[in-house]
Design a protein around this nucleic acid. Structure first.
Ligand SMILES: [Zn+2]
Ligand SMILES: [Zn+2]
Ligand SMILES: [Zn+2]
Ligand SMILES: [Zn+2]
Lengths: 137, 137
DNA sequence: TCCGCTAATGGTAACGTTTTTCATTAATAC
DNA sequence: GTATTAATGAAAAACGTTACCATTAGCGGA
């Protein structure tokens, strides 16, 4: 086996700007949404770079990603531990939640001869504000 | 408000064939996979029609759908009641599972001021066969 | 400070999936 | 049978995402 290369990465203005833009979002956003936001703020970052960075943040665990309506959305999460989300279907706002023990997952899987690799769980609804405005409409 | 039109739909050979093909699958399959299966069986059904029917089955609740690797997969589910799946990431085979009480979902949501509309939960892994063949590789 | 290496970028082309279009077919009602 | 129009299918368009590749620029060493 070859020795682990220290994988040299460089810090660039784009990385910083993308990361900070994502972190200032309390919603799940798509690459294109974030790209537009950056443009509006006067930053010039290529769309390809936004895609690359979001994927890399997601891979490294610095961002969570979910898929809604066949599009990938990203969010910088405060918690490092395993968690899930309560997402507003209207505005995208999300809250991190922790379900009760998930031990039954592996147990159930074993019963069926499955070996668990991952699981996904997301709750969708309307946040207080969106529910209120929907009612008054 | 206008009266509800009885929405007249017609029963066609294609609908029947697509629905029955889906029901005979114990796996989650994509529109393209199902289309190829139908071709192999000698049926001539347009790909667009397969897409249309799968979407409509999914909308009407006669089929469940999940997204793996940016592709939509469908499955005709035996259970009408609320349930979730244990899906093999390799072959798509799926088992219907029922998690323990999901009451905490609405409770937790309420704490955050959310009104729950739906939730999704899927377990991914490798079925016994796929796990075995992966190991021997 | 300059240099060399190469990671990173950004514009664009390519990609694969899904939807839309629209002329044609055929299911239903009369 | 005939009229009506839902449904189909082939092809084109749309869409989100990735790949390509020439160019830029971060960083370590001279
Ligand atoms: Zn979990
Ligand atoms: Zn909201
Ligand atoms: Zn559930
Ligand atoms: Zn399998």
């Amino acid at each position: 086996m070859t020795a682990e290369e220290p994988k040299k990465t460089r810090s660039t203005a784009q990385k910083a700007v993308i990361r900070s833009a994502l972190e200032s979002e309390k919603r799940f956003v798509s690459a294109q949404q974030l790209h537009r936001t950056l443009e509006d703020q006067g930053h010039t970052v290529g769309l390809a770079t936004v895609y690359r960075q979001l994927n890399s943040l997601s891979d490294s665990g610095h961002a969570d990603s979910i898929t809604i309506a066949e599009k990938q959305l990203f969010r910088a999460c405060a918690q490092d531990e395993h968690h899930h989300h309560l997402v507003c279907e209207n505005c995208g706002k999300a809250v991190e939640v922790e379900p009760p023990s998930e031990d039954w997952i592996t147990t159930t899987a074993r019963v069926h001869g499955f070996e668990v690799t991952r699981h996904m769980f997301e709750i969708f609804g309307l946040c207080a504000e969106c529910a209120a405005s929907a009612q008054s409409r």
